[in-house]
């Protein structure tokens, strides 16, 4: 009897396992639509998760000043330095702004067709983060009911966060740009020379990118933004270059980028819905 049981158990596990592997292969890459069961389940669990993540964020907020009290001096100094730099930048940018307005006037007088600006952001909060250590996925509390679609871009106040992977009725799964398999087309945030490339994530909260142009003239501390190639709209801040690697074997120039977003402290995000049919070029910069 026990022997039969043992054999039955083995067969059940093998059959269920094979079935699951099949479904795994089908569901890979994110489905267009998830099942109603998952969607409903999410609606039940999301409020509870929101409650607990609020408690977590509150705790984090309260304990952070105590933990970081020793870092504040250096932080203060670096901020003061940045402030000076920014003041200098404001002057030059005001000049540029004047030129830009003149150009705009010219544009109107020539009846130039205006590109529409993106203004339909959906703001929501992060309610759950990945519990495994392999990927960097998280759940947000907005779904199809709020107008989120698959492949929508997720940003926050600092810059690019990620891409919507699967959508439920009022929750969605987001895959962040620091995830290993995500890739982002980028360009340099500069006026004169436009260097393009592709960034991909690593597991250690940093991004590694490759420039198409091996002769490109890039520097440490340059800012990079999305280029508009691929899913992401153009002109969203990604981060700052902190290391240059010259790979002579592959004839490629690699850059290492520190993301502008602090992925360890992610509470509020905004979603820009993805529209397949209307590929709009936006001019947003956070």
């Amino acid at each position: 009897m026990t022997r039969m049981n043992e054999r039955l158990k083995k067969i059940i596990i093998i059959v269920v396992g094979l079935l699951m592997i099949l479904l795994m292969a089908i569901s890979f890459g994110g489905r267009e639509r998830i099942t109603a069961v998952e969607s409903q389940l999410g609606s039940f669990i999301a409020p509870v998760q929101r409650f607990f993540s609020q408690i977590g964020n509150f705790m984090d907020e309260k304990t952070e000043p105590i933990i970081n009290v020793l870092n504040y001096k250096s932080l203060n100094e670096s901020l003061a330095k940045e402030n000076e730099m920014l003041k200098a930048q404001v002057v030059s940018l005001t000049m540029a702004q004047k030129d830009f307005e003149e150009l705009n006037d010219l544009k109107q007088s020539l009846h130039y067709v205006e590109r529409s600006d993106q203004d339909n952001y959906i703001s929501c909060s992060v309610i759950a983060k990945d519990i495994g250590n392999w990927f960097n996925m998280f759940t947000i509390d907005a779904g199809t009911e709020q107008g989120v679609t698959k492949n929508s871009t997720v940003i926050n106040g600092n810059g690019l966060v990620g891409l919507v992977y699967e959508v439920g009725s009022n929750w969605s799964k987001v895959i962040s740009i620091i995830d290993h398999k995500s890739s982002v087309g980028f360009e340099m945030l500069r006026v004169t020379d436009d260097y393009d490339g592709i960034l991909s994530g690593t597991t250690n909260y940093e991004l590694v990118g490759e420039l198409y142009d091996t002769q490109a003239n890039v520097h440490v501390n340059d800012y990079i933004v999305t280029s508009g190639l691929g899913m992401y709209p153009k002109g969203i801040l990604i981060g700052q270059i902190y290391e240059l690697v010259d790979d002579r074997d592959l004839f490629l120039k690699q850059i290492k980028v520190k993301p502008a977003v602090d992925f360890k402290k992610l509470n509020k995000v905004m979603v820009i819905p993805y529209d397949e049919y209307e590929e709009e070029i936006t001019t947003y910069l956070p």
Partner: peptide, 23 residues
């Protein structure tokens, strides 16, 4: 199942691994 539904890249991958581990 919960982990795969809400935070997984692929369905059932964690479920099947946990089952194998228990077995």
């Amino acid at each position: 199942l919960l982990q795969d539904t809400f935070l997984g890249k692929v369905l059932f991958v964690n479920t099947i691994i946990y089952i194998i581990l228990i077995y």
